[in-house]
Design a protein around this nucleic acid. Structure first.
Length: 643
RNA sequence: GCUGCUGUAGCUCAGUGGUAGAGCACUCCCUUGGUAAGGGAGAGGUCGACAGUUCAAUCCUGUCCAGCAGCACCA
């Protein structure tokens, strides 16, 4: 006698087990037509399944966000059927929905090529048009294994074998084709719609493990309608347009070459940008009570053995030897052990705590070749690193202060959305469970005090301690993890850091590892993409160009540029024998924020015509006024606040 | 590192088993033009590296290097 409670609170009773389809029909023909699936007591289900007991039921239509995920999942099934019908002998594995779309991993001797997409998509559209119902069947485990093994689907058979004993083996059938799947699914293949597109092929390991065979993965994107699909494709184009590698080339910021794989050749303009950011960070840290230090690049392996890094990360370290000396050194992959050396130098008193030790630490890590990606992942990078040596009692206060500083920096740099993740103990870790209990609860408590709300990221902590990860969202909605705060009770122990307490006994300090940008290189990559190269004036690598219209105004243009440079701005004169149109275009393409145009008239009146990047209008200013105005506008946000 | 793709001028890219081309950028000349490309000429390449096949390789084959996408990794 199930009583069905609907989202509006109304209740309908049925005589016996009733399918979602029947419930929807009982409510009305419009809903019956639109309902794709249902949520029973919070769990998504096929609409064709029966409800046997009292339950809260909500129907999912194309308007509900849940429908997109189902469309994507079903599109993966349709893709698999299409592939198997076109390429017999291909084995299926799994095909989930993912952000923006879906993928399906296949096993086949010959990989797929993007040229195959047209045929596969056409076949998929046929399958969709056939409106084959998704039919759920529950099979005995042995039958399912035998069935897939007989078909030569060894991956599927393996999956079924590994399913928990108490789980139903559900098989979904669409026409002749069937797949092991937990579901739920839409009503039929037609519900998938046609707003999908195959995007790319890639390799992926079976079950995500690099010791397993490599499969061929086909990625697709799928949406509720063509409009959503078009919007997504447009967003991809936008991301490509903002690609920092491309902008870096166009703006002459940096380059890479084979002789220094994974390392950056910063050109003058890029380095200006870097320095502007570094100067800003240095000011922020000074205000925050940090003391800046500088530690060696090459450090004896003994120190890395003591810190535990040699054991775990040796293969990712650059190791150096000299012929005349029987020593092994390593380029530092991180700064912490070096900072502990400074802390250990001499006896420390509790009065010195918290000691906030900062370094723009140049680090080198031998990253796997496949991981390298422009500025985002490099082998030589610089962290805005700092270690706070403090007592356990000070963790909360330091967290509060750090979180405040981090938000201020992100805001100044143009990022408003920041999320926090709490990453707790990983499987491979140093330190006892008691130590981890202590560190994790201390960090949680600190979050409470700091008013930080977070989501969990289980098992993703550093090997020496739990961490907070700060994720910011950029202008086109992408997330980047940049900042981090890690509580470390292990390294001070390993490297024997201690201070003399009020009781004149030795104590272990707590070490907080923290960074706001993460690495300058990566953060600059993010900044470039955030602004699409059109930086706010204070960061712009080339702030002003003074362009002459006629050669008679050349000397005056030089004079204006020199005055701007004198005021500390990155200004150049462009007095080349070119039309003003060409100059405007060239400097606009180079994303110079301000162009000052001077012709005969301006030279005589000692004025300039100011043109903003991308703007149509111009404003006229006197010589002195324009220097003052631009200087004011180019003031970094932190200095501006104080003024 | 793994799978796939790619590598031709500074950049973007054509092209061919008989040692190469375009546009932009660059240099020079003409043009002095008022807000996103004025005109002309010129210079520029061991066709990623090394082997092999061939009378002949930038092109075919192999190995390596690098880049791109994804996976795995990310102290």
């Amino acid at each position: 006698m199930p009583a069905i409670t609907l989202p509006d609170g109304s209740v309908r009773s049925f005589d016996g087990p009733v399918t979602g389809t029947a419930i929807a029909e009982a409510i009305g023909p419009g809903l019956a037509k639109a309902a794709l699936a249902m949520e029973v007591n919070g769990a998504l289900q096929d609409i064709g399944r029966s409800v046997t007991e009292d339950a809260a039921v909500r129907f999912i239509t194309r308007k509900d966000p849940e429908s997109v995920e189902m469309i994507r999942h079903d599109a993966a099934h349709v893709l698999a059927e299409a592939v198997q019908s076109l390429y017999p002998g291909t084995q299926v594995t799994i095909g989930p929905s993912i952000e923006n779309g879906f993928y399906y991993d296949f096993y086949r001797n010959e990989p797929f090529k993007p040229e195959d997409f047209a045929a596969i998509e056409a076949r998929m559209k046929e399958i969709v048009a056939n409106a084959e119902p998704f039919v759920r069947e529950v099979w005995p485990r042995d039958k399912a294994i035998a069935f897939f093994e007989e078909k030569g689907e060894r991956f599927k058979a393996e999956l079924i074998r590994d399913l928990p004993e108490d789980e139903d083996i559900s098989i979904y059938r669409q026409g002749e084709w069937m797949d092991l799947c937990r579901g739920p699914h839409l009503r039929n293949t037609k519900d998938v719609g046609t707003a999908f597109k195959l995007m790319k092929v890639a390799g992926a390991y079976w079950r995500g493990d690099h010791r397993n065979p490599m499969l061929t993965r086909i990625y697709g994107t799928a949406w509720r309608d063509q409009k959503e699909l078009d919007a997504h494709l447009h967003q991809l184009e936008e991301a490509e347009r903002r690609d920092h590698r491309r902008i870096g080339r166009e703006m002459d910021l940096f380059h890479f070459q084979e002789e220094a794989v994974g390392q950056i050749f910063w050109h003058h303009k890029g380095w200006r940008l870097y320095c502007a950011l570094q100067d800003y960070m240095r000011r922020a840290q000074t205000r925050g009570g940090y003391q800046e230090v500088r530690t060696p690049q090459l450090v004896d392996r003994g120190l890395w053995e003591a810190s535990g890094h040699w054991d775990k990360y040796r293969h990712h370290m650059f190791v150096a030897t000299v012929e005349d000396e029987d020593k092994t050194l390593a380029l530092k992959p991180m700064n912490c052990p070096c900072h502990v050396q400074i802390f250990r130098h001499g006896l420390r008193s509790y009065r010195e705590l918290p000691m906030r030790m900062a370094e723009f630490g140049a680090c080198h890590r031998y990253e796997p070749s496949g991981a390298l990606h422009g500025l985002m992942r490099v082998r030589g990078f610089t962290q805005d690193d700092a270690h706070i040596f403090c007592t356990e009692d000070q963790i909360a206060d330091e967290t509060v202060q750090f979180v405040r500083m981090l938000h201020e920096v992100y805001k100044d740099l143009g990022f408003e959305h920041v999320r926090v993740k709490f990453a707790d103990r990983p499987e491979q870790r140093a330190g006892s469970d008691e130590t981890w209990d202590k560190a994790e609860s201390a960090l949680k408590e600190a979050c409470e005090v700091a008013g930080v709300t977070y989501e969990y990221n289980p098992g993703e902590g550093a090997f020496y301690g739990p961490k907070l990860e700060f994720v910011l969202r950029d202008a086109i909605g992408r997330d980047w993890q940049c900042g981090t705060l890690q509580v470390d009770l292990v390294l001070p122990e390993r490297l024997d850091a201690s201070y003399i307490g009020e009781d004149s006994a030795r104590h272990r300090p707590v070490m907080l590892h923290r960074a706001i940008l993460g690495s300058f290189e990566r953060f600059l990559g993010i900044l470039i993409e955030q602004h699409a190269g059109r930086f706010p004036l204070w960061l712009a690598p080339q702030q002003v160009v003074v362009a002459s219209i006629v050669s008679d105004a050349g000397a005056y243009a030089e004079e204006v540029a020199a005055a701007l440079r004198e005021a500390g701005l990155a200004a150049e004169a462009d007095v080349r024998n070119d039309k003003i149109n060409a100059k405007i275009r060239e400097h606009s393409v180079a994303r110079v924020p301000i162009i000052l145009v001077v012709g005969r008239r301006e030279a005589e009146e000692r004025t300039v015509a100011m043109r903003r990047l991308g703007g149509k209008d111009q404003e006229s200013f006197g010589f002195d006024e324009v220097v003052a105005r631009i200087t004011e506008e180019a003031t970094p946000p932190d200095l501006r606040k104080k003024a």
